[in-house]
């Protein structure tokens, strides 16, 4: 049973993002635990990809570092397994690109390959990934390069294993928002601005307000969290006031890249959670 929507049961949600394996797996586990203790309502864990076309420079750097350090899809699952032992109830989502999900063949297949055996048959695409999500307690998946029109082949497998395939809407979605909002899984990821991920000094409330109002008109039960460009408590407060929560990625990674330890990142998360709670 997916815990994605539990993220919204403590009022407005604060959702931090970080990249698995940046700077290494142990650090990622420590950061996630610290953020959960500081009030993060859901943690998004990025599975690094070689060519993250939707990301700005900060997450690009994080992906490159994580891959250079040997992080893999299985390694990202292992991080979640370790977190789960301590935090059984924390909602966790993966965020990545479709190719690593499409190509993932599961730990047993990988072991066989390592021992030089070539398994007879390749598993059905997406099944090993979502099966492992179910086993390790990954509640949701966000794929930056799968728009609504291409979701079907992924979503039917995700549904089978009780994993929420999150949909995004953006300022250019216009008429498409209605069909996206009709039957969403988990929450709807509202992309605040045009372009790629990264910190922005000016966030435009109007576009977000419009998107959220179309979503709510179409589907009053839908939950919306706003991401892209948010870094300060004021921005988080502003965006959460218009929706059900705020998602922050690049700003968290900037702290990690600047050498902040789990305590400092936790202090930041606490200030952001306080800001969205008061919104």
């Amino acid at each position: 049973m997916s815990k994605t929507l539990d993220a919204f049961k403590n009022g407005k949600a604060f959702i931090p993002f970080l990249t698995a394996g940046d700077p290494d797996a142990d650090a990622t586990v420590s950061y996630i635990l610290a953020m959960a203790d500081a009030g993060a309502d859901l943690v998004e864990v990025g599975i690094p990809f070689s060519d993250p076309t939707a990301e700005g420079p900060v997450i690009q750097e994080a992906d490159a570092k994580a891959l250079a350090g040997g992080m893999t899809v299985s390694g990202s699952f292992e991080i979640v397994e370790r977190v789960r032992k301590v935090k059984p109830d924390l909602p966790i989502a993966f965020m990545t690109y479709i190719n690593p999900v499409f190509k993932y063949k599961g730990a047993a297949y990988e072991e066989a390959l390592k021992e030089g055996q070539v398994p007879d048959e390749e598993p059905e695409p997406y099944v090993p990934f979502f099966k492992r999500c179910e086993e390790d307690g990954v509640d949701a998946l966000i794929l930056a390069d799968v728009p609504f029109e291409e979701q079907e082949e992924v979503r039917q497998v995700a549904d089978r294993y009780g994993v929420d395939l999150i949909s995004m809407v953006s300022p250019t979605s216009r008429d498409r928002i209605r069909k996206i909002a009709e039957d969403p899984r988990g929450f709807i990821y509202v992309v605040s601005s045009m372009g790629v991920t990264g910190v922005r000094s000016d966030l435009k409330s109007d576009a977000v307000r419009d998107m959220v109002s179309i979503i709510r008109e179409t589907n009053p039960a839908a939950r919306c969290a706003v991401g892209f460009g948010i870094s300060t408590p004021d921005q988080a407060k502003q965006m959460a006031a218009l929706s059900d929560g705020a998602i922050v990625g690049s700003a968290v990674l900037r702290k990690i890249h600047a050498g902040s330890g789990p305590d400092e990142v936790a202090a930041y998360v606490r200030s952001m959670k306080e800001a969205v709670t008061g919104s």
Binding site: P147, E152, V191
Partner: peptide, 23 residues
């Protein structure tokens, strides 16, 4: 599988939501 622009199983529109309107 989306139906647009397919050559057998190949093709499609695997792109960010932001670009779908432009496509």
């Amino acid at each position: 599988m989306g139906t647009k622009g397919r050559f057998g199983e190949f093709g499609g529109q695997y792109i960010t939501e932001t670009l779908m309107n432009a496509l």
